[in-house]
Structure formats: C-alpha cells, structure tokens
Amino acid sequence: MPSVRDLRDRIRSLKNTQQITKAMKQVAAAKIRRAEALQKQSRPYADAIGAMLRDLIANVGSVDHPFMKPGTADVPGGVILMTADKGLAGSFNANLIRMAEIHGRENANLAWYAVGIKARNALRRQRGETLQVWPLAQGDMFANAQALAQRVTDDFTSGKIASLTLVSPKLVNMMTQRPELRQILPIVAAETADAEKTPKGGAVEFEPTPEFVLGRLLPKYLEFTLYSAMLETNASFYAAQLVAMNNATDNAKKLIDQNTIEMNKARQAAITKEILEIVGGAEALAG
C-alpha cells in the first residue's frame, strides 16, 4: 500500500495537471470565439462570390476553363489533408488522418498537400517524405490559403494532378466535428446547377467578356474555398480541444478525489496503528 507521502505527491502532481488542462480549456474557449467571428466575417464574401459565379455561368454558354474540365486519367489525383498544427485535442487530428489513410488505400495514385503541421507529420510517417507544409494558424491565414491555391492551380493547370480533393473537418456543432472528403477541382456543375433559375440573356454586361471575368473569378473562388476550409478547421480544432480539455479536467478531478480518499484511509490506518502500539506498550508496563 502506498504511503501517505506517496499519495500526497501524486495528488499534488494531479492538481498541477488539472490546472494546466483548465487553463488550456479557457484558452480554447476564447480562441474558438475568435475563430467563429472570423468565419462569420467571411460569410458576406462567400455569398457575394457565389452570386457572381451563378450570374456568370448563367451568361456564359459553354464554360471553357481548365477548372471545369477533368484532367487526364494517368496523372495522380491531388489531395489536401487539412489538420491542426498542434495536438491535445482528443481524436481530432487522428480522425482526419485516418480518413486520408483510407482514401489513400482506395486510390493508389495520389499526390498529397499538407495543411497543418500534424498533417505533414502524418504524411511523413506514412510515406517517408517530408512535404511542404502550409501552416494553419501561423501568420496570415488568407495569405497561406492564397499560396496553397496558387500551388494547386499551377499543378492542376500544368497537368501534374488530375483533380483536387480536400480532407478537412466539418464543424457540426461545438461537440461534434466530422472529417469530410470533398472534391474541389474540377469544379462540378452541380454546385452551379441553380444557375438555371437566374434569367438568361443579355441582361448583364461584362467587361471585357464573361469568359475573361470567369477566368478571374474561378481562381478566386478556389482561394476562398480553401480559406474558408482553413477557418473551419481552425474553429473545429479549438472546439475539439475545448471538449478534450474539459474531459481531462474532469478526469483529473476524479483521480484527485480517489487518491484523496486513499490518502485519508492510509493516514487513518497509520494513526490507528500508532494508538494500538501506545496502548499495547502502556498495558505491558501496567501488567
């Protein structure tokens, strides 16, 4: 049975752990508010660019842009794996990495892009090569998204990748983040199917031409899609961390309680033992 001192040390260390997890929980709660605010601020842009894209596609008879056409079959498909830069968020990163792994097993020929340091590390473990990493939460997130968009655009238009798939978390609510796999390039017509509802014809003027504007708009659309996925990943990460740290704090409390009971028992046993010894000694003298 551990001594009173052992137990006291254990409780002290548990209390320290609890303090840390509690602090991390509070930090996550503050950061998630900020992440959500950013997400909210990007929504008007999302609405506006979506509306412009619909207007354009309704006015352009046949869309002739590389982004709308699938690449050749014999080149690898591109996959972006988006995770957080840090851990301590329960199974958040592991779930994303597992989904990417399964996708990798189903499709042999893939080219990977890593967003988030955890993604880079996982891909290094799996494939033994260190890929360039686009950090999720370091520096200017929009600039990072632009740099990534430029890279995949270059690879896509030059025929190095045939398509682009994104593995990223979806923030269902504060408690649930689900990894999601979706195709980004070529841009599928389904996304723009409701374009039919807007009136067609010469109602809108384009300068210089609808095709030219569309050629400019599609890369921006890609940039923004990646940016908003990064925002969502970031918010999901803090949500997952909040839950994980909440659980950790609760667990630490449970352990502290258990150990405190055990310590009290041990102390009581020691006292009883001492009393017995004294009484025994006194009786021996009296007898």
């Binding site: 412009m52 207007d55 354009l56 809108v204 003027e205 384009f206 300068e207 030219f212 504007v213 708009l217």
Partner: peptide
Amino acid sequence: EVGILPSHAPYLTA
C-alpha cells in the same frame, strides 16, 4: 477606370 452612378445597367467586371 469605371465610374458607377445609381441606376447603372447590370454590369460585372474584374
């Protein structure tokens, strides 16, 4: 440069 006044015809440019 493009100047837009109220009641402009529908117009979209880069």
